[in-house]
Write a protein that binds this DNA or RNA. Structure first.
Length: 993
RNA sequence: GCGGAAGUGGCGUAAUUGGUAGCCGCACCAGACUUAGGAUCUGGCGCCGCGAGGCGUGGGGGUUCGAGUCCCUUCUUCCGCACCA
């Protein structure tokens, strides 16, 4: 029988499922290997060909590791809480759980038919109560913890309370809110419980905080910074505005340094590590206090509103504190809290106008405006702590409220934005380095020696910066400081379809629910919209109330469940713990994680954060969860286009009656056939008038009768380019009949090329329904089989590279598998292998591929493996090889890539069904690759000139002598001795004469 | 603007990591078998040239006996960040 992939694939998929072939054991004497895919959100659209790319790669890797004797954990699940299901629910009233379930079933069916070796007994769904019970549990641990900087780890709140009871707040070094109180043990004990709880909330790793959030009115929810793009929501593209709100937050900033340091210990792609570094945004510098210069005593104006000033200094953060003698003004963010009290009556109008302008500007405008200088003077001054000089205070929107302290000391000689600002407002620009060039722009150099800098004059950067920090510290006006750009992560969403937060409010204070009441089940609601009063949908739930007070109504964000799910796979059905200690100690961490780079600063950062926290609590052993990360590239769409020609019908004569008749009787579609021109003829059509006339004539011919009746003729008007469904196109050739069936009702003409083909144009675009360029794996599996799809997806190019999907060429992969199948069968398609001893050439082919696949899988170069498989099979076909010894090993080597066909052949070879996946990978023997002779290239004067055949048996010295004595070389030497002989690794590679 | 990645035939790509550029596949061309085939097999296929030969890895320069690979410079494309003090 010919290669009957459908039957084979169905048979083995059924066998694997029934026999749980890929079930991983938590107890094994084999070494462990954990291969994880980023689990998908089950969207309604199902899988397209881009999704399985990473899954196929990880599956090949997992299968290969099994052959190499590892106990492999290779699970799959669903990140099943999310916005689309909720949006759908709002529109249709359908419960998101139902939509999600249906989508999961589609995903499962699509995944199953590709033949992945997932251990489905460990499947997880983040929206399942068995799972989110533990997400809630981890939230409770975070609530019950604080970050102790001295120990550099999270510790329990209980421990902190004990400390407060004994020592008060003295000596506590915590990552906490800025407004924590200072108190003695006695004062602490005297506080009311409520007061104590309020204070503890400032320390907890998850806490409530009034903060400006990205509020999306259209979605009725708060979004994280990484869910907002250019002022619009990432999902849906709705406008996002800033709004003050009390929100649950996660103190991820406590882990900023460890998140940064950890990047050096893991094997991740550089771009991802780099993105995380930028996101964390560490800058080393100093904070400096500038005393506010109080004018009340100099001008005696007692109505001056600056008497309202409560702090007598403004704090700034700077990375170049050494330039402090160059400060000629200070700039605050318009939103800075001191701005109203600093503004003098004379400047009030100007400042208020400016603030109003800034507020109006969207984030987009602010970005577009980046180069125009704007700002306003407050009328107030501060005093520079190093030289007691009076410095004017401005506001400007180039200073961001959210970074540092929202205030900068402006050094126009060293910072380009300050420079432009100073030029614009006529402020002085003072150089502070002897080699600084500041005629046309700021010069941020660190070279040279300081000038105009009092006690720093003559020092270099290194000494200067140390000196000025020492000076500021001694005066209590500043200190070295490290600033991070990363903000605490907001952890509440005003949505329905997410994990409920296991918290209730009593007297406005949050309390955790009892652990034994977990999971806190997501309640039913009548509608999935916010309430009329703007409360989240959960506020609609009836009879959903804790005995002591109302539950929290917001739910957790999308990244909650995905921040720990890899541990659940280790022990997916445990109802006592999120995973048993024994299981976690066995599997430990993910050895290989494959997924898209779009999660670089979201999921991958939060997961590292939660992992570090769980480790601080002693619940997991490893500091980093994902040892090696591979980003599979994105598959873009390849759209196809057809070109339609439009014609108008014109009267033949100027006869007025004709014109009237045509305009009255003429129904365009009844007369003019729908006309498409092949893309390869379009140029000629546009540039060659004769050809154009020819085409018009031939179209006219098809509607000759009608034209004659009305006395009209066709005149060309325009060409229009249209998307055409890529499923109607094969190798850019349009399947005309199918296209007609689907799109054309009446007559049509296709101007085809000399082969009778209609060629389509193509372009790369995002894969989307509206562009008709979505290729569904189902169609390809149906037509070519899963093994072909797997081979072809890997063959397409390097895994990490983004590339357009192009089905052209999938035939090559299919032909390869059929050729492979034929090796085992005679002309009548009867299975037939021979037990003869393999020949040298056959062994050579086999061992080349054994080694190649080892090397390729080690460096995740799956595409080159596929090429090598093709070479091996071509060679063995040429050798008419049907030797059992060769084929059996070849089946094992190919099985990770094309598991179904290999399993079938494995059993035909007489092996037990299901044993292939755990068969030992054949041992590579280099001896088989040794050839008697090899072609030996030698260049003369740097140019390739001579090819010698040399016996491999020769030693390197003998080779040298052989080469120099050979007639070919002697011919070039022409009696002279060579000037220079270049030998590399014992081989002559070049002779200079 | 800053950071990162990448530019090789008509196309996707490969190159022992500094050693004969273009493996493998698609497309194309020719041939064989076929009355027929969206089947199979054989051969060809970077460019210029009838040829010998010359030129070729975005452009320019450099290091080297030798550069797709390393260095400098420049252009282009993609991705990320976006006034970060």
């Amino acid at each position: 029988m010919d290669y009957h992939f459908k039957e084979i694939e169905r048979k083995w998929q059924k066998f694997w499922a029934e026999n749980q072939t890929f079930k991983a054991d938590n107890n094994s004497s084999k070494p462990k290997y954990y291969v994880l895919d980023m689990f998908p959100y089950p969207s309604g659209a199902g899988l397209h060909v881009g999704h399985p790319l990473g899954y196929i790669a990880s599956d090949i890797f997992a299968r290969y590791k099994r052959l190499r004797g590892f106990n492999v954990l290779h699970p799959m699940g669903y990140d099943s809480f999310g916005l689309p299901a909720e949006q759908y629910a709002i529109q249709t009233g359908q419960h998101p759980a139902i939509t999600t379930e249906a989508n999961i079933n589609t995903y499962r069916r699509q995944l199953d038919q590709i033949g992945f070796s997932f251990d489905w007994s460990r499947e997880v769904r983040t929206s399942s109560p068995d799972f989110y019970k533990w997400t809630q549990w981890i939230f409770m641990q975070l609530f019950n913890s604080w970050y102790n900087k001295s120990a550099d780890k999270a510790e329990s709140i209980e421990k902190l309370v004990k400390y407060f009871e004994q020592n008060g707040s003295a000596g506590v070094d915590a990552v906490c809110d800025e407004d924590v109180l200072t108190f003695t043990a006695a004062e602490w004990m005297a506080m009311s419980n409520r007061h104590q709880q309020e204070e503890l909330l400032k320390y907890r790793l998850t806490y409530l905080r009034e903060s400006t959030v990205n509020w999306c009115p259209a979605l009725g929810t708060v979004l994280a910074n990484d869910e907002v793009k250019d002022g619009f929501s990432e999902r849906g593209g709705y406008p996002v505005e800033q709004k003050k709100m009390t929100q649950w937050s996660m103190r991820i900033t406590a882990y900023a340094e460890r998140l940064l340091q950890g990047l050096d210990t893991i094997d991740w792609p550089d771009p991802v590590s780099e993105m995380q570094r930028n996101w964390i945004g560490k800058s080393v510098g100093a904070s400096v206090r500038f005393t506010i210069y109080d004018l009340r005593f100099t001008n005696g104006n007692s109505t001056d509103n600056r008497s309202l000033i409560t702090n007598n200094y403004i704090e700034v953060f700077t990375t170049r504190v050494d330039t402090i003698f160059g400060v000629t003004f200070m700039v605050l963010a318009p939103e800075h809290e001191l701005v109203p009290s600093l503004t003098t009556p004379q400047q009030k109008a100007e400042i208020e106008t400016y603030i109003a302008q800034t507020k109006k500007k969207s984030e987009l405008d602010r970005m577009a405006d980046a180069k125009t200088v704007s700002g306003a003077f407050t009328g107030s001054y501060v005093v520079n702590p190093v030289n007691d000089e009076k410095v004017p205070i401005y506001i400007a929107d180039y200073v961001l409220a959210g970074y540092g302290t929202g205030a900068v000391m402006a050094v126009p000689s060293g910072d380009q934005r300050d420079y432009l600002f100073a030029k614009h407002f006529g402020l002085p620009i003072v150089p502070i380095m002897d080699i600084q060039k500041i005629e046309t722009e700021a010069d941020p150099t660190k070279e040279g020696r300081y000038i105009n800098s009092a006690f720093m004059n003559g020092l270099n950067y290194k000494d200067g910066i140390a000196k000025v920090i020492e000076f500021l510290e001694s005066k209590g006006m500043g200190k070295a400081k490290i600033n991070y750009r990363m903000r605490d992560a907001i952890f509440g969403r005003q949505r329905y379809w997410g994990e409920p937060v296991p918290v209730y409010f009593k007297d406005d204070l949050p309390h955790l629910i009892d652990e034994k009441d977990l999971p806190l089940i997501l309640p039913e609601v009548d509608k999935y919209l916010p309430t009329e009063t703007g409360e989240p949908p959960l506020a609609r739930a009836k009879n959903w109330k804790h005995a002591e007070g109302a539950y929290e109504h917001s739910t957790m964000p999308g990244w909650a469940g995905s921040s720990w799910y890899w541990y659940r796979y280790m022990d997916a059905h445990n109802d006592k713990e999120f995973a048993s200690r024994q299981a976690i100690d066995y599997w430990r961490d993910v050895d290989l994680y494959i997924g898209g780079s779009e999660h670089a600063t979201g999921h991958l950062l939060y997961s590292r954060f939660w992992n570090k926290f769980l480790r601080d609590l002693g619940l997991v052993p490893e500091e980093e969860p994902f040892k090696k990360l591979i980003n599979q590239g994105h598959i873009q769409g390849r759209s196809n286009f057809v070109y339609r020609l439009f014609f108008s019908v014109q009267p033949i004569s100027d006869n007025a009656r004709d014109v009237e008749k045509i305009s009255m009787d003429y129904k365009y579609n009844d007369i003019v056939p729908v006309t498409y021109i092949s893309y390869d003829l379009l140029d000629r059509f546009n540039n060659d008038p004769n050809y154009k006339n020819e085409v018009i004539a031939s179209v006219s011919k098809t509607c000759e009768k009608e034209l004659n009746e009305i006395g009209g003729k066709l005149e060309y008007t325009q060409t229009m380019k249209r998307h055409v469904d890529v499923n109607l196109v094969d190798n850019d050739v349009l399947e005309i009949e199918k296209f007609k069936e689907n799109h054309i009702k009446g007559n049509s003409v296709f101007i085809t090329n000399k082969n009778g083909d209609y060629i389509c144009n193509w372009e790369i675009e995002k894969m989307s329904k509206s562009k008709y360029n979505v290729v569904n794996p189902d169609t390809l599996v149906e037509r070519y089989g899963a093994d072909t799809l797997r081979m072809y997806e890997m063959f397409l190019g390097p895994l990490e590279q983004s590339k357009p999907w192009n089905t052209n060429g999938i035939e090559g992969a299919f032909k390869f598998l059929r050729k492979f199948w034929k090796l085992f069968h005679d002309e009548q398609f009867n299975f037939r292998v021979s037990d003869e001893a393999p020949s040298k050439a056959e062994l050579k082919s086999l061992h080349k591929i054994i080694r190649k696949v080892e090397e390729d899988i080690d460096r995740f170069s799956f595409n080159t493996s596929v090429s090598s498989f093709m070479i091996a099979v071509n060679e063995l076909t040429d050798l008419k090889c049907s030797k059992r010894a060769i084929l059996q090993d070849l089946v094992i080597v190919l099985s990770p890539y094309a598991p179904h066909i290999c399993e079938e052949l494995w059993v035909l070879l007489g092996n037990k069904a299901g044993t292939l996946s755990y068969a030992p990978y054949p041992k590579f023997n280099p001896e088989y690759l040794v050839e008697d002779e090899f072609a030996y290239p030698i260049s003369v004067n740097g140019k390739m000139k001579i090819n010698l055949n040399i016996s491999l048996a020769l030693e390197s010295k003998e080779i040298e002598d052989f080469v120099l004595a050979s007639p070919e070389v002697q011919k070039y030497l022409d009696g002279k001795s060579p000037k220079k002989v270049i030998v590399v690794k014992g081989r002559i590679v070049n002779i200079v004469i």
